[in-house]
Nucleic acid binder design. Structure first.
Lengths: 95, 95
DNA sequence: AAACTTTGGTTTATATTATAAACTAGTTTA
DNA sequence: TAAACTAGTTTATAATATAAACCAAAGTTT
Protein backbone atom coordinates (compact mmCIF):
# COMPACT_ATOMS: atom_id res chain seq x y z
CA UNK A 1 0.00 0.00 0.00
CA UNK A 2 2.43 2.65 1.16
CA UNK A 3 5.73 2.31 -0.60
CA UNK A 4 8.68 3.82 1.20
CA UNK A 5 9.50 7.37 0.28
CA UNK A 6 13.14 7.83 -0.69
CA UNK A 7 14.42 9.75 2.34
CA UNK A 8 16.89 11.61 0.20
CA UNK A 9 14.08 13.15 -1.78
CA UNK A 10 11.65 13.49 1.08
CA UNK A 11 13.18 16.76 2.19
CA UNK A 12 11.77 20.12 1.27
CA UNK A 13 14.97 21.68 0.04
CA UNK A 14 16.36 18.67 -1.80
CA UNK A 15 12.99 18.09 -3.43
CA UNK A 16 12.81 21.70 -4.54
CA UNK A 17 16.28 21.46 -6.04
CA UNK A 18 15.42 18.26 -7.86
CA UNK A 19 12.17 19.76 -9.06
CA UNK A 20 14.03 22.70 -10.57
CA UNK A 21 16.67 20.53 -12.14
CA UNK A 22 14.03 18.25 -13.64
CA UNK A 23 12.94 21.07 -15.93
CA UNK A 24 16.17 22.96 -16.36
CA UNK A 25 19.11 21.07 -17.91
CA UNK A 26 21.40 22.77 -15.44
CA UNK A 27 21.36 25.42 -12.76
CA UNK A 28 23.90 27.43 -10.83
CA UNK A 29 24.25 27.48 -7.07
CA UNK A 30 23.16 31.09 -6.78
CA UNK A 31 20.12 30.46 -8.95
CA UNK A 32 19.07 27.48 -6.87
CA UNK A 33 19.66 29.45 -3.72
CA UNK A 34 17.40 32.24 -4.86
CA UNK A 35 14.65 30.02 -6.26
CA UNK A 36 14.51 27.80 -3.21
CA UNK A 37 14.91 30.62 -0.76
CA UNK A 38 17.52 28.71 1.14
CA UNK A 39 20.68 29.75 2.93
CA UNK A 40 23.95 29.01 1.19
CA UNK A 41 25.05 26.69 3.99
CA UNK A 42 21.95 24.59 3.88
CA UNK A 43 21.98 24.44 0.09
CA UNK A 44 25.63 23.45 0.03
CA UNK A 45 25.01 20.55 2.38
CA UNK A 46 21.95 19.34 0.52
CA UNK A 47 23.60 19.54 -2.88
CA UNK A 48 26.44 17.45 -1.51
CA UNK A 49 24.00 14.81 -0.40
CA UNK A 50 22.27 14.70 -3.76
CA UNK A 51 25.62 14.51 -5.43
CA UNK A 52 26.93 11.75 -3.15
CA UNK A 53 23.83 9.77 -3.93
CA UNK A 54 24.52 10.17 -7.62
CA UNK A 55 21.28 12.06 -8.20
CA UNK A 56 22.98 15.19 -9.50
CA UNK A 57 26.34 16.10 -10.96
CA UNK A 58 28.13 19.12 -9.62
CA UNK A 59 30.59 21.00 -11.70
CA UNK A 60 32.83 23.71 -10.30
CA UNK A 61 34.41 26.25 -12.57
CA UNK A 62 34.94 29.98 -12.95
CA UNK A 63 32.88 32.59 -14.70
CA UNK A 64 35.46 35.28 -15.24
CA UNK A 65 36.98 35.52 -11.82
CA UNK A 66 34.03 34.22 -9.86
CA UNK A 67 33.57 30.61 -8.87
CA UNK A 68 30.43 28.97 -10.19
CA UNK A 69 28.91 25.73 -9.06
CA UNK A 70 26.70 24.19 -11.69
CA UNK A 71 24.32 21.31 -11.05
CA UNK A 72 22.50 18.99 -13.33
CA UNK A 73 20.45 15.85 -13.01
CA UNK A 74 21.89 12.44 -13.67
CA UNK A 75 19.89 9.63 -15.24
CA UNK A 76 19.79 8.07 -11.79
CA UNK A 77 18.42 11.28 -10.33
CA UNK A 78 15.64 11.46 -12.87
CA UNK A 79 14.69 7.88 -12.16
CA UNK A 80 14.74 8.49 -8.41
CA UNK A 81 12.59 11.57 -8.75
CA UNK A 82 10.03 9.78 -10.88
CA UNK A 83 10.01 6.91 -8.48
CA UNK A 84 9.49 9.23 -5.56
CA UNK A 85 6.59 10.95 -7.24
CA UNK A 86 4.94 7.62 -7.96
CA UNK A 87 5.37 6.48 -4.40
CA UNK A 88 3.94 9.75 -3.14
CA UNK A 89 0.80 9.19 -5.13
CA UNK A 90 -0.04 6.26 -2.87
CA UNK A 91 -0.18 8.75 -0.05
CA UNK A 92 -1.92 11.69 -1.62
CA UNK A 93 -4.18 9.97 -4.11
CA UNK A 94 -5.38 11.58 -7.29
CA UNK A 95 -6.46 14.82 -5.74
CA UNK B 1 7.13 29.15 -6.31
CA UNK B 2 7.83 26.58 -3.62
CA UNK B 3 5.39 26.96 -0.78
CA UNK B 4 6.53 25.56 2.55
CA UNK B 5 5.52 21.99 3.22
CA UNK B 6 3.80 21.57 6.59
CA UNK B 7 6.52 19.75 8.52
CA UNK B 8 3.93 17.89 10.51
CA UNK B 9 2.64 16.24 7.39
CA UNK B 10 5.96 15.93 5.63
CA UNK B 11 6.80 12.72 7.41
CA UNK B 12 6.25 9.32 5.91
CA UNK B 13 4.41 7.77 8.82
CA UNK B 14 2.26 10.76 9.71
CA UNK B 15 1.37 11.25 6.06
CA UNK B 16 0.38 7.60 5.73
CA UNK B 17 -1.83 7.86 8.80
CA UNK B 18 -3.48 11.00 7.50
CA UNK B 19 -3.93 9.43 4.11
CA UNK B 20 -5.74 6.47 5.66
CA UNK B 21 -7.89 8.65 7.85
CA UNK B 22 -8.84 10.83 4.91
CA UNK B 23 -10.78 7.94 3.43
CA UNK B 24 -11.86 6.09 6.51
CA UNK B 25 -14.03 7.99 9.00
CA UNK B 26 -12.06 6.39 11.82
CA UNK B 27 -9.39 3.80 12.40
CA UNK B 28 -7.99 1.88 15.32
CA UNK B 29 -4.40 1.93 16.47
CA UNK B 30 -3.79 -1.67 15.53
CA UNK B 31 -5.28 -1.15 12.11
CA UNK B 32 -3.08 1.86 11.46
CA UNK B 33 -0.09 -0.02 12.75
CA UNK B 34 -0.66 -2.87 10.36
CA UNK B 35 -1.50 -0.74 7.33
CA UNK B 36 1.45 1.56 7.80
CA UNK B 37 3.83 -1.19 8.77
CA UNK B 38 5.09 0.81 11.68
CA UNK B 39 6.20 -0.12 15.15
CA UNK B 40 3.79 0.61 17.98
CA UNK B 41 6.23 3.02 19.59
CA UNK B 42 6.74 5.09 16.51
CA UNK B 43 3.03 5.14 15.73
CA UNK B 44 2.18 6.17 19.26
CA UNK B 45 4.55 9.13 19.09
CA UNK B 46 3.34 10.24 15.67
CA UNK B 47 -0.33 9.98 16.58
CA UNK B 48 0.37 12.15 19.60
CA UNK B 49 1.91 14.78 17.39
CA UNK B 50 -1.00 14.78 14.99
CA UNK B 51 -3.37 14.96 17.90
CA UNK B 52 -1.47 17.79 19.60
CA UNK B 53 -1.61 19.73 16.36
CA UNK B 54 -5.36 19.24 16.27
CA UNK B 55 -5.20 17.28 13.03
CA UNK B 56 -6.77 14.14 14.47
CA UNK B 57 -8.90 13.25 17.46
CA UNK B 58 -7.89 10.29 19.57
CA UNK B 59 -10.42 8.38 21.58
CA UNK B 60 -9.46 5.72 24.11
CA UNK B 61 -11.96 3.12 25.21
CA UNK B 62 -12.34 -0.61 25.73
CA UNK B 63 -13.53 -3.30 23.41
CA UNK B 64 -14.47 -5.99 25.89
CA UNK B 65 -11.42 -6.07 28.08
CA UNK B 66 -8.95 -4.75 25.55
CA UNK B 67 -8.03 -1.14 25.24
CA UNK B 68 -8.70 0.42 21.86
CA UNK B 69 -7.37 3.68 20.56
CA UNK B 70 -9.51 5.12 17.82
CA UNK B 71 -8.44 8.00 15.59
CA UNK B 72 -10.33 10.24 13.27
CA UNK B 73 -9.63 13.36 11.27
CA UNK B 74 -10.64 16.78 12.46
CA UNK B 75 -11.82 19.51 10.10
CA UNK B 76 -8.47 21.15 10.71
CA UNK B 77 -6.67 17.97 9.76
CA UNK B 78 -8.56 17.68 6.51
CA UNK B 79 -7.74 21.27 5.64
CA UNK B 80 -4.08 20.76 6.52
CA UNK B 81 -3.88 17.64 4.40
CA UNK B 82 -5.44 19.33 1.41
CA UNK B 83 -3.16 22.26 1.85
CA UNK B 84 -0.15 20.00 2.01
CA UNK B 85 -1.13 18.19 -1.16
CA UNK B 86 -1.54 21.48 -2.98
CA UNK B 87 1.83 22.71 -1.82
CA UNK B 88 3.41 19.44 -2.89
CA UNK B 89 2.13 19.90 -6.39
CA UNK B 90 4.47 22.85 -6.80
CA UNK B 91 7.30 20.42 -6.27
CA UNK B 92 6.19 17.41 -8.23
CA UNK B 93 4.21 19.03 -11.01
CA UNK B 94 1.35 17.35 -12.82
CA UNK B 95 3.14 14.15 -13.55
C1' DA C 1 47.11 51.05 -0.24
C1' DA C 2 44.79 49.69 3.95
C1' DA C 3 40.49 48.67 5.50
C1' DC C 4 35.89 47.30 4.59
C1' DT C 5 32.23 44.78 1.74
C1' DT C 6 30.53 41.51 -1.33
C1' DT C 7 30.36 37.10 -3.67
C1' DG C 8 30.29 32.35 -3.61
C1' DG C 9 30.60 29.25 -1.28
C1' DT C 10 32.15 25.31 2.96
C1' DT C 11 32.45 23.64 7.64
C1' DT C 12 30.75 23.01 12.00
C1' DA C 13 27.52 23.29 15.76
C1' DT C 14 22.87 22.93 17.30
C1' DA C 15 18.13 21.99 17.32
C1' DT C 16 14.61 18.95 15.61
C1' DT C 17 12.94 14.49 14.07
C1' DA C 18 12.35 9.86 13.40
C1' DT C 19 12.77 5.52 15.18
C1' DA C 20 13.64 1.57 17.92
C1' DA C 21 14.30 -0.37 22.29
C1' DA C 22 12.77 -0.87 26.72
C1' DC C 23 9.05 -0.70 29.59
C1' DT C 24 4.02 -0.89 31.63
C1' DA C 25 -0.49 -2.74 32.55
C1' DG C 26 -3.55 -5.87 31.95
C1' DT C 27 -5.25 -10.51 29.64
C1' DT C 28 -5.14 -15.05 27.87
C1' DT C 29 -3.29 -19.59 27.67
C1' DA C 30 -0.75 -23.71 28.93
C1' DT D 1 0.83 -19.58 38.29
C1' DA D 2 4.15 -18.65 35.09
C1' DA D 3 4.86 -17.61 30.38
C1' DA D 4 3.35 -15.34 26.51
C1' DC D 5 0.49 -12.09 24.27
C1' DT D 6 -2.09 -7.54 23.40
C1' DA D 7 -2.16 -2.77 23.26
C1' DG D 8 -0.01 0.47 23.87
C1' DT D 9 3.61 4.49 26.27
C1' DT D 10 8.07 6.29 27.58
C1' DT D 11 12.70 7.01 26.87
C1' DA D 12 17.11 6.81 24.60
C1' DT D 13 19.64 7.12 20.40
C1' DA D 14 20.61 7.89 15.72
C1' DA D 15 19.73 10.61 11.75
C1' DT D 16 18.37 15.12 9.66
C1' DA D 17 17.73 19.71 8.76
C1' DT D 18 19.23 24.13 9.39
C1' DA D 19 21.63 28.18 10.67
C1' DA D 20 25.63 30.30 12.30
C1' DA D 21 30.31 30.86 11.83
C1' DC D 22 33.86 30.76 8.89
C1' DC D 23 37.05 31.21 4.55
C1' DA D 24 39.21 32.96 0.23
C1' DA D 25 39.21 35.89 -3.48
C1' DA D 26 37.61 40.02 -5.72
C1' DG D 27 35.73 44.54 -5.64
C1' DT D 28 34.93 49.06 -3.35
C1' DT D 29 35.78 53.02 -0.43
C1' DT D 30 38.50 56.53 1.80
Amino acid sequence: MFKDLDPLLHSQLRLAVMSLLMSLESAEFTFLKEKTNSTAGNLSVQLDKLSSAGYIKIDKSFKGKKPVTTCRMTKQGIAAFENYVNALKNYIGDR
